[in-house]
Amino acid sequence: MSGRFVRLAEMDRKPLTFLVDGAPVDALEGDTLMVAILTSSRRLRDSEFGDGARSGFCLMAACQDCWVWTSDGDKLRACSTFARAGLEISRRAPEATWPNLP
């Protein structure tokens, strides 16, 4: 699916790849996780209360509507964390983190 964000400049940066929900995503060095994810898809997370997809709101670490998970269950604020090669991100709570983890 096409992305939400549109790159307008600064496209000569070094490319990098990481995983989102198991699928590889191409990004550029210096991208926030949010930009890296939303340039190739339209959703960042789901509201817990059933009102649908969210894609962040403030981009300045204030609204907290952009948290995603790493494969080991840590949480990252997508608008204020840089994408890194090899990261494994999941947009839904990974099964293994809660509450089954010993």
């Binding site: 307008l8 991208d31 960042l44 969210r54 403030c58 300045m60």
Partner: peptide, 25 residues
């Protein structure tokens, strides 16, 4: 305004300034 794709004005500006992106097409 809870739908994905709604951003604050400040957010729109940061997308451009800090990431060289527009928030939509």
């Amino acid at each position: 305004w809870h739908h994905a794709g709604t951003y604050s004005l400040g957010a729109a500006q940061i997308a451009l300034k800090a990431q060289a992106c527009a928030i939509g097409s």
